[in-house]
Nucleic acid binder design. Structure first.
Length: 748
DNA sequence: TTGTAGCCTTTTTTT
DNA sequence: AAGGCTACAA
């Protein structure tokens, strides 16, 4: 471990003068960046080169040496995780400096946040000038999709010919490029004309209901500033120093935003790595790195190429791989640390075998005293996590899955949240429609449709329309009563909104709405976890008390609603704090682990088939692979499966081209299997979960045979009476056995 | 209006 | 494989 220098953030160089204390442990390039004179600067920082550290030290430098008030600084990141980490590390660094007798400087006034978070804050502040309702709410992409679908239905567009997803994509794309419907051409093309119409209607719906989607947050602020120069001028005057992390991930609107805010005065300190640009699909423009150097005056460039994270072998692999991408800004990572172990390559039969292999290696890592949270399993798509989870589960290894179904995206949570949204704003039609009849209370499609029409006819919200329809006699008395009862329930809850603490209010929502009762009634295993999720939700609300309110006079309820949409819910820390980390390659960016498993390196999965259409897509996949490799500090495993079941379909695969792009001498192929030739034949039938009488045999399972003793299932073929499994029995080698006769026993 | 059985489609990454 | 959606019976 000697190759890794101590992390200096907490290093008590207390008796040095402040400047030396700060820069003492930086290398030359890092020091150049941190101590640079004021001005625009681009830091091209390779993976593991201390990018974040430089950013944090720069902030400390500005405050302590340049005597710049934190009040005039703005630091922007892309994820909340990054923002939180940055703030925490900065505070820690300042605290150490404080001990050395420095005057107290607080980072509390400092704006650190994500683009979206900051935009939200600005819009709350200036909702009037931005043309928003005071109690506007933020919607996530699922909400957005629902609204798009509804809009398209109203336009009588058939979902088959007009996939809503496409429309959603179109809308977001436009917004990312700062285009409103009226900015668009009067298309001749039917498709584009229709999309434009959907966009227009969608936007009107959002305006009416006080809803703001992710892209809208950014666009609104942009427009706010265009239309209100005095507001912009205020912020320009305030934020003289703007620091941007992961600059390669900025999209058009974010770039515009920065340009506006910086004006001619501010100094922008941008940190990025073109080789780690992996969000092109959501509008990020790597070219912003180039533009930055042209659009901003006198940009100085610093390259950070020394890597402190990985072994020489891992870096070499990463460099060679990324070398296949043309048009890079050019960077070559190096380390003066040791070469390290070769990269291990494992060819699995199928995904179960792959998972089995990984779990086995994790197990031996743990047996040798390694900590589980130092292991990460990375995959291309979320769907891959399930098999891995099962394997970990049956090995009784704790784990934690990042992303995937986020807590706040689960149906039962969204239901509960919709009630809260409706309490905060009764005109939120999305929320209204979601919960009028969840749980079912006799308000069917018929009734809802009548309410919807009434709302549309009068240009009012569904909540108000419901009130009118109840008295107008358009409904059967039964429906009217049900609807009235629903409204009374909401109104009664609302009475408590102000007086009760948020968690008690939430508790009441769960009880009075019948959400809990509904789940308790069915009481299957899934419903059990759903109930637990609801409890978890109540728990989460406990942090939102009046005292803890930090944002601009919002009620705890409103604060909670906004936070949960923007926050990915990382902190809803469940079990598995000390477990193996499972995540997609995308969410692994910025993290590092001693032991990394990169799995599913197969053509069409990684690189993903969707990205193979164009050269850009492929290059982005390669960068993604580069990100994955460079996460590893000491040891890297790469695996692929010869057969993989995807979308219920079994596929024969070819190893990813990325494997071939890593020099063979850095790789070491691992063969756990017997010498049996049969292993090279692709199995003819599903090689797992055999459903014969014996029950739960599958690849990787340990079994007991009366004559051969204990072994592991390597493979299987056929089904029913002809189902055979290949079992490896230690020194006796592998044998194909017909399951019906073999009399195998599963071994725990 | 509700609940369910069966048909259908969908397959990447996320603030 | 899994979720969404429709059609149908109660």
């Amino acid at each position: 471990m000697s190759q890794f220098p101590p992390t200096p953030d907490s290093d008590p160089n207390a008796d040095l003068d402040p400047a030396s204390a700060l820069i003492n442990l930086l290398n030359d390039a890092q020091r150049e960046a941190v101590c640079a004179p004021l001005g625009n600067r681009l830091i091209l920082a390779g993976a593991g080169s201390g990018k974040t550290r430089v950013l944090i030290y720069r902030m400390a430098w500005l405050m302590q040496i340049e005597r710049i008030s934190p009040y005039s600084m703005l630091a922007v990141t892309f994820t909340n995780k990054a923002a939180n980490e940055m703030r925490a590390r900065l505070m820690k660094l300042l605290r150490t400096a404080e001990n050395s007798g420095q005057p107290r400087i607080s980072a509390y006034d400092l704006w650190v946040g994500t683009f979206h978070g900051l935009a939200h804050r600005l819009l709350r502040q200036h909702w009037q000038e931005a043309g928003l309702l005071e109690n506007f709410q933020i919607i996530d992409s699922e909400d957005q999709s629902r609204i798009v679908r509804k809009v398209m239905k109203a336009l009588e567009l058939d979902e088959k010919n007009w996939p809503p997803k496409q429309a959603q994509w179109f809308i977001n794309q436009c917004k990312d490029e700062a285009r409103r419907p009226h900015d668009l051409d009067n298309y001749d093309d039917v498709f584009e004309r229709t999309m434009k119409q959907v966009y227009k209607n969608y936007q009107e719906t959002c305006e009416r209901n006080g809803l703001v989607d992710f892209a809208e947050l950014l666009l609104r602020v942009h427009e706010l500033w265009v239309q209100n120069p005095h507001i912009l001028a205020d912020y320009q005057r305030r934020f003289q120093h703007i620091l941007v992390d992961e600059f390669q991930d900025t999209n058009t609107i974010q770039y515009l935003w920065l340009q506006q805010l910086a004006g001619a005065q501010a100094h922008v300190f941008a940190v990025g790595d073109d080789d780690q640009s992996i969000y092109g699909w959501r509008g990020a423009k790597v070219t912003n790195l180039h533009h930055f150097q042209q659009d901003f005056p006198e940009v100085q460039l610093t390259k950070l190429e020394q890597n402190y994270r990985s072994t020489g072998t891992i870096l070499e692999a990463a460099n060679r791989l990324i070398g296949n991408n043309p048009g890079r800004l050019g960077k070559n990572l190096w380390t003066d640390g040791e070469e390290g172990l070769p990269i291990s390559l494992y060819r699995a039969f199928n995904e179960y075998d792959e998972a089995r292999f990984i779990v086995e290696r994790v197990q031996s890592w743990a047996d040798e005293g390694g900590s589980l949270k130092e292991c990460a399993i990375l995959y291309r798509s979320n769907a891959q996590s399930r098999v891995l989870e099962e394997a970990l589960l049956s090995a009784r290894l704790p784990y934690r899955v990042y992303g995937g179904l986020r807590f706040f995206e689960r149906a039962e949570i969204k239901d509960a949240m919709a009630y809260l949204q409706l309490l905060a704003n009764e005109d939120n039609d999305s929320a209204f429609e979601r919960v009028v009849n969840t749980p079912t209370r006799g308000i069917g499609d018929r009734t809802v449709e009548i309410v919807r029409q009434e709302a549309r006819r009068n240009g009012i919200s569904m909540w108000r329309a419901a009130g009118q329809v109840i008295v107008s006699g358009e409904l059967t008395t039964r429906a009217a009563n049900a609807l009235r009862k629903f409204q009374e329930m909401i109104l009664q809850l609302r009475e408590n909104t102000g007086s009760l603490p948020l968690h008690e209010l939430t508790e009441q929502v769960l009880e009075n709405s019948g959400l809990r009762a509904q789940l308790k009634k069915k009481n299957t295993e899934k419903d059990q976890t759903r109930l637990e999720n609801l409890d978890e939700l109540v728990n989460a609300t406990k942090h939102y008390t009046d005292e803890s309110l930090d944002s601009d006079g919002l009620s705890p309820l409103q604060t909670f609603l906004s936070k949960t949409v923007l926050d990915t819910g990382e902190e809803s820390s469940h079990s598995g704090e000390n477990g193996v980390q499972l995540m997609t390659l995308h969410s692994a960016k910025g993290l590092e682990f001693p032991l990394i498993f990169l799995c599913g390196l197969e053509e069409k999965l990684f690189p993903h088939s969707m990205s193979l259409q164009d050269e850009n897509g492929l290059e982005e996949e390669r960068r993604l692979c580069y990100v994955g490799i460079t996460r590893a500090m000491r040891q890297l495993y790469i695996s692929y499966a010869e057969v993989r079941r995807l979308h219920g379909q079994e596929n024969y695969t070819r190893p990813s081209r990325f494997i071939h792009e890593i020099p063979a001498e850095l790789l070491e192929e691992i063969r756990l299997r017997s010498s049996n030739q049969a292993v090279y034949q692709a199995p003819k039938a599903p090689a797992f979960a055999m459903d014969s009488g014996a029950g739960k045999f599958r690849v990787g399972q340990r079994v007991m045979h009366p004559k051969f003793g204990e072994g592991v299932i390597l493979n299987s073929e056929g089904s029913g009476a002809t189902e055979r499994v290949e079992v490896h029995f230690g020194h006796q080698g592998s044998k194909w056995l017909v399951l019906v006769y073999a009399n195998l026993q599963a071994v725990e």
